[in-house]
Design a protein around this nucleic acid. Sequence first.
DNA 1: CGCACACTTGACGGGGTTCAAGTGTAGTGG
DNA 2: CCACTACACTTGAACCCCGTCAAGTGTGCG
Lengths: 271, 271
Amino acid sequence: MTSQYKASRFSAPSKQPTQTYRLSSMCLPAPLSVGDLDTFSTISRQVSPLRKRQTLFAQGEEFKSLYIVRCGSLKQVYRDITNEEHITQFYLPGEVVGLDAISSGFHPGVTQALETTSVCEILPEALEELAQKRPGELGMNGCFLRVMSRALHQERMMVRLFLNRTSDVRLASFLLALSTRFRQQGYSPFSFRLSMSRSDIGNYLGLAVETVSRLLGRFQDLELLTAKGREIRIDDLDGLTALADGRGRQSIWHATVSSPSSSHLASMPAH
Amino acid sequence: MTSQYKASRFSAPSKQPTQTYRLSSMCLPAPLSVGDLDTFSTISRQVSPLRKRQTLFAQGEEFKSLYIVRCGSLKQVYRDITNEEHITQFYLPGEVVGLDAISSGFHPGVTQALETTSVCEILPEALEELAQKRPGELGMNGCFLRVMSRALHQERMMVRLFLNRTSDVRLASFLLALSTRFRQQGYSPFSFRLSMSRSDIGNYLGLAVETVSRLLGRFQDLELLTAKGREIRIDDLDGLTALADGRGRQSIWHATVSSPSSSHLASMPAH
DNA sequence: CGCACACTTGACGGGGTTCAAGTGTAGTGG
DNA sequence: CCACTACACTTGAACCCCGTCAAGTGTGCG
């Protein structure tokens, strides 16, 4: 079985197991692998695409099917007891939607499209049928358990990322995760369009909208990226990665701009 | 070796379509339900108990089996690329250990006992055998998917709990979750002993050790609980719950002590 | 134009981390 | 028994990241 991570380093289990992960790569769920996608597509069927703001299911709605995102994106919003809204996940192409509804039988939050989005439905009957025909597929090596295990692991890493990191690390990690996902989908990892608002990003990362905005401006001052509205162009991938891998609680606000013209920070914009 | 109770109930645990969840109840993983425990116990076997600090598996170790905690407790520590340690989970009795290793095939962190702990091993062969005999058991209604789905959901709620809540809410939620778990195990929910250090708690909740210590002192000032070393006695469950359900970013530092003798805050200890 | 909403930018305050020092408390060996 | 060490825990003071409040600037839509 192929590992999702750099498993080639672990030739022998007896070797010193110093396996570490990059927190920055844990900011978004990973898509299904090609093999898993094959398995799933045998038991799924296309449904009519969702328009922007249309919901796939409401909070508290009964669990019926799982879905796989084909193209577009969704956000899962969960409203808590104090009527606050929390964005618990963004779903990008290749990701399975609805896994967290299996246990309770009800969807824990609204899931709605951020843009025109098409999804495939995994029919439970087809799944049961698959279970009868190929029981191994659902065992320890089955794609289902693998997918859920990965989701669980990633969610766990997310907690750590957000708990102990400054706002700049969080945002850099988020943008890098997006970049990686776009590359996996065959799009440019350096230039892409955000389907979610600043407010959504802030909510997801536990930051105020103002902080997100300020950080994006700061990233541009540091010449890490260029942001015009929701269009993002990453200019310095290594720099952004270094930032995301930083561990300290020190923010980048007081970092000096490495560009020759050090005065443009306090001066007027160039145009 | 078969249990006299049949694991025949596979209905969804939750009856009403809950609209909202209490974040405070999401601070620790939930134990297996009785029915699930029955199913698991048919395919598990006891292993020799772990002593304090002994590890169940190391970080990067190959995934072989799942385990269920019988008694005692463990912590899962994950060391990241910057050599920092993060406690990603505490495992209490009834909880399944190792679910996050299925996808990659390697354990993402060290899991070691906080005290003398006994666990049951779930043999993969027995699991495969079960898959052959009772394929439905591993389908959408199977206990496995349910357990993982619940873990995923809880991890997601944890993120939201920790992202937007103040330190006092986090700690109160953690203590209440512990209390609930102890009650489920048949122990007193009001008086128990922490198996983890202040440092562990702080790491898990994303707080400095000093903050945990200060908060525990503050909780005592407010007569919510009594803490002597690792012994905890909850004096005001409702008050603690109200604190955990609070949503604001305002901490309790400037809250006035409601007790009649308002002077004992600045005065000498009673003895 | 007017309204709504997304986004930006500035000023300020507070919660919580960090630094620093002190106080138990357990474990070991004399 | 005490001395000694190591570590868990407490307590105090200062700083700073980031949330809040406030105001201003696009940008789209009727």
